[in-house]
Computed example of a mutant assay.
Amino acid sequence: MSDFLFVSAVSSFDIVRERLLASPCMAAGRQPLVLRWNAPSAAQVFNAVMDSRPPQEWVVWVHQDVVLPEGWDTLFARAIAQAELQLGRLSVVGAYGVVGAGGAAVHAGHVLDRGQVLRGPAPLPCLVDSLDELLVAVRSDSGLRMDPALGWDFYATDLVLQAQAAGLQAAAVDAFCEHWSNTPQHPPLPRPTAQRIARSGAAFEAKWQQKLPLTTTCVAIHQRGDVRALAQAMLAPDAQPLDQDAP
């Protein structure tokens, strides 16, 4: 039996067919995979799987636009085993994340993101304080769940912080994969995307206010309102304030 149960939320059948389902690691149903269409949040999909008490040791949340190379599952299993020899038992593991926060933040991981190779300077494996949502594995008996209030953003870092609060550990390992997000890397962002990020960010900031500053792979948060300010800055210069439509 595989050590991994893969889970993904689908908003575009074309994207999931061209990316995740076409991955060499996933081709022809080689891995157990749960797909859910048009969910209101990542949490609804992920938590239902975790609540079903799957027999696999790890539940791997992966974006529909990720490509996993041939043999990725074997390499990931080895990477986790090696990490646990060095770091101790892990409950959350990802492909890309951040160690520390603010001016001390260091990226960790190795992925291809929209055609650009990202290789964080932190030596792998390493304990992290944030993980990117593109791929995050959670030990199935950890008791951890995603927060539905966070929608489609910040939920991986939230899992890391939940783990830390429970005395558990989260790490980044060398698990190279490709991420082909269609979210623009540079302004302007579509207004619905900016609104979504601002809403999720406000919920995340409120939840973890006592832990600030926090740094994710996309934003450094020093105080409440920083995520909304970034989302506003990513809109067109003449855009209406997000405060009018993103409570």
Rank of each mutant, 00 (worst) to 15 (best):
C25V: 00
A137R: 04
D245G: 05
S23H: 08
L189E: 12
R191C: 05
V117S: 14
I80E: 00
W61Q: 12
L150K: 05
A166L: 15
P148T: 03
A104D: 07
V93K: 02
R114C: 12
V173D: 01
V138C: 01
G151L: 08
D158C: 09
F4I: 09
G94A: 00
I197Q: 02
E178R: 14
W208S: 05
F13H: 09
E133P: 01
S23N: 07
F46Y: 12
A170H: 02
P54G: 12
D65K: 13
I197M: 09
V138Q: 02
L214A: 12
R199K: 14
Q82C: 10
V138D: 02
T74D: 10
G151K: 08
D129K: 04
D153L: 13
L214T: 12
A137D: 03
A101V: 00
L112Y: 05
A149E: 11
P32V: 04
A203E: 15
A229K: 14
F4M: 06
L144R: 05
G151D: 04
A239L: 04
Q169A: 12
D129R: 07
L212F: 08
D226G: 13
Q244V: 06
D73G: 13
E178C: 09
V62K: 01
A175N: 07
G167H: 13
V16Y: 07
S52T: 03
C126T: 15
T183R: 01
D245W: 02
A171S: 01
S11L: 10
P54N: 13
P148W: 04
A79S: 08
L214Q: 12
H222I: 01
Q82D: 15
V92R: 02
Q116N: 12
G225E: 10
D3G: 09
F204H: 11
L35Q: 11
E70K: 13
V106H: 06
E205A: 06
A105R: 07
V49H: 05
P241A: 03
L5C: 07
S181C: 05
A166S: 13
R228S: 08
S140K: 12
K207N: 04
L112G: 01
C177D: 01
Q31C: 14
A42D: 11
C218F: 12
W152T: 12
S11D: 13
